[in-house]
Design a protein around this nucleic acid. Sequence first.
DNA 1: CGCTTGTTTGCAAGCGTGTGCAAAGCTTGC
DNA 2: GCAAGCTTTGCACACGCTTGCAAACAAGCG
Lengths: 336, 336
Amino acid sequence: MPPKDFISALEVAQRAGVSRSAVSRTFTPGASVSAETRRKVTDAAEALGYHVNELARGLMRSHSGIVCLIVSDVATPYRSALLRELTGKLQNAGKVAMLINTDRSDGSVDRALSQAIRYRADASIILSGLPDASIVRLCLRNGQRLVLINRDDDEPGPLKINLDDFEAGERIVTAFARAGCKSLAFANSDAGTPSLMGRERGFVAAATRCGLEVSVERYGWTGYEAGRVLAQRFLTRSRRPDAVFCATDLLACGFMDAARHQFGISVPDQMCIAGFDDIEQASWLSYGLTTFAQPVAEIAAKAVGWLSVDDNGNDNGLQSVRLTAELVWRTSIRAA
Amino acid sequence: MPPKDFISALEVAQRAGVSRSAVSRTFTPGASVSAETRRKVTDAAEALGYHVNELARGLMRSHSGIVCLIVSDVATPYRSALLRELTGKLQNAGKVAMLINTDRSDGSVDRALSQAIRYRADASIILSGLPDASIVRLCLRNGQRLVLINRDDDEPGPLKINLDDFEAGERIVTAFARAGCKSLAFANSDAGTPSLMGRERGFVAAATRCGLEVSVERYGWTGYEAGRVLAQRFLTRSRRPDAVFCATDLLACGFMDAARHQFGISVPDQMCIAGFDDIEQASWLSYGLTTFAQPVAEIAAKAVGWLSVDDNGNDNGLQSVRLTAELVWRTSIRAA
DNA sequence: CGCTTGTTTGCAAGCGTGTGCAAAGCTTGC
DNA sequence: GCAAGCTTTGCACACGCTTGCAAACAAGCG
């Protein structure tokens, strides 16, 4: 098999007996071509197996159609669900997703963004980490759009999509109180993300306001294993909490499993548990976790929608979106 | 903020007081540049915020550095784990991943591949679906490499990575037999994928060879819900199986949950269960699922490695790789 | 038929980069 | 001091496409 190069528009033009511009226009929506030549061109293209070279096209137009998704922990249920929504919606909008995995540590968000620039991405959507202010400015200066999801940053320019984490923390306190819980606990990771800390602050604020005992532990990454460790810490205390809010569903699953299988605690009879994210596993029979649902579809819709607003200068002022996480009731909190 | 276009090599050259070729060579590894000019160029580039335009570069060289990952059900644990490995390894190899989501039904793998062609991807890795033979040939003809993971196809050209599904099906039968199980069951999805069917065929072959009772049910997609439905079907029969092999861990989780919580069956005492994939949830305390581990890291390594072999014609004959799925023992099968 | 208006079409100038080629510069050895 | 050899540099072309511009053409109208 000879590594024959790709078919070019010129070859199509020659075969169709028209000029190169004609074939270009045929594949440019809204260009002026007669039905006759359009047919000749598409026939020739079909026969030759021609596909427009988006690289060359992106060189001429100033936009490439590429959108970078910058994300770590791709394999995590919440992240992958968001990824599914984003890629689906991006494709519907005629864009294509370039996935950059920032699992490796050192300043890799900045490296990811610089790669986005090298490929002249129209936009970048950041799901993990926080980029340096200087590179953010660089992106914006070159007309690259930027979306930050659940990463609070005050730099103006990027669109920031956040949840009502603080209020969620408050709301779950009243749910616990209504279930008759007296001694509350917050199980957090020590990642210190603004969203995680927001949930924590709202939770302890509401608890103290209600005169309820409340304590906090932070440990490790936001995964299942950390949940088990946190359970260990809380449940070996002399006085055990009877309600615990986990900053993440994964933490909650680990916590619940440890509580049940290692400490023989019955949920929700002896202890109420709530989580955050509403990952698929939260609805599994073994967990039945009452949790706050991340509106992933809505998040993705907002992000992609913002990318598609007209580029005619009017930035339409939108800088920040705040969505609410709905509490979905299952069986890990006693009925009132 | 003026949407000033990106900095080009020309501007860097002017500022550095050298020719444009010099700056091009500075950013081309292995090109001939003196230390003096290299310094001048990198300084100017730094000051101006210059980043090589990979689109233009890909136009000149015939390879773009882009590798397409074509996948459906991104949010599924096994798929997202594979995705994590692939993106990580691709980046280490200096490539960049373009993610194409084929969740939408109609012939979308073909559409995905045609997009890969339009962006002149160096290669495509297909995790889901099976492309049409004609478009496969088109890709190959243009020097695009193709990797099929767990999709058996006889078309020569692409690299095919598969597991020993049939043998795994056989091996689990002996595990069940050793645990004293008499009545075996295979819970499958009705997707009919070669890998799923391979497990099934190996399982029933070995079971009948051992003179054990065996029955098969197929239903729905390979997810948790289907597992629950399959449990319903098997466990409402007059004669219940005492060992069931689920084609997928997600099926197994659904099956186990239904068996325990809806039918009060104790696993593994009354019933042994095994799965396939070794997703993270399999190791969670609530499941402790004995299952075959997909060697995701190895799969990704093989795939990416194959993409990086020298392009100097010698296709090194490698067309097909067969990896073995190791059985990891947990607690869902009784000890011998 | 001539004039005006509107639609197609081809030409050619870019877009930002890599790279072969030859000129220029530097080093070395006699 | 000069020829030979090596390294560095600039020129100019190519890559495949879009698009402004003007020429060509078709149509409508008096």
